[in-house]
């Protein structure tokens, strides 16, 4: 009976009263943040440990956030700051990094990076919730391929493509209730 109470639940309680599961936040953001850090550091292992530190910092500050968007903003800002620190350190070692740092230190570079990674994150996590075939069809569809191109690419029949699209559409509708419809699939 004790096990009921021993389940490891790490919650982040927001000041607006919402409770988020820390692990879920981690799962939703880790991959995208690593790719985001990679835009600055271009060294995968370093990125992973930097993002790990960012999540530990998030956990330590978990009572400080008014709402969900503040957590998202905190994650991107913290990763950027940590990455810039690493770059500045590297710059000392290699003078020629100067130009690179200037571009990457800029607000525009940051804006572009956040928007791209965040948009992809939203798309990927929607796609991730689909079964394999529907996922592939979806992805190609998003790339701008029409049904015939998708059929050729995946070496399946046109009808199968249509079936998977319909299936994916239905699944996402069921899963996400009325929150959003992936209408591009129809």
């Amino acid at each position: 009976m004790l096990d009921v109470f021993m389940n490891r639940n790490y919650s982040i309680i927001l000041k607006n009263g919402t409770r988020l599961e820390f692990k879920q936040v981690f799962n939703q953001y880790f991959n995208s943040l690593v790719l985001f850090a990679d835009r600055y550091l271009k060294e995968r292992e370093e990125c992973e440990s930097l993002v790990q530190d960012t999540f530990l910092a998030l956990w330590e500050n978990r009572l400080e956030f008014p709402d969900e968007i503040s957590i998202k903003a905190y994650l991107y800002t913290t990763v950027r700051n940590k990455a810039l620190n690493v770059l500045k350190h590297r710059k000392v070692e290699q003078e020629y990094m100067n130009d690179v740092l200037q571009e990457e230190d800029s607000e525009l570079y940051y804006m572009k990076s956040v928007i791209e990674e965040e948009t992809r994150r939203l798309i990927f996590s929607a796609i991730d919730s689909l079964p394999e075939h529907a996922r592939k069809v979806c992805l190609l569809n998003l790339e701008g391929l029409d049904n015939q191109d998708i059929a050729n690419e995946l070496k399946i029949s046109l009808n199968t493509v249509k079936f998977h699209k319909k299936n994916a559409y239905q699944l996402l509708r069921d899963k996400l209730k009325d929150k959003f419809y992936l209408l591009f699939l129809v």
Binding site: T77, I115, I123, Y181, F184
Partner: peptide
Amino acid sequence: MTKKYIHIADLIYKDKVGIA
């Protein structure tokens, strides 16, 4: 500003999947 960028990403996502 970060919050604004995240918001824009949300808009682009919704636009792409046709739910905006």
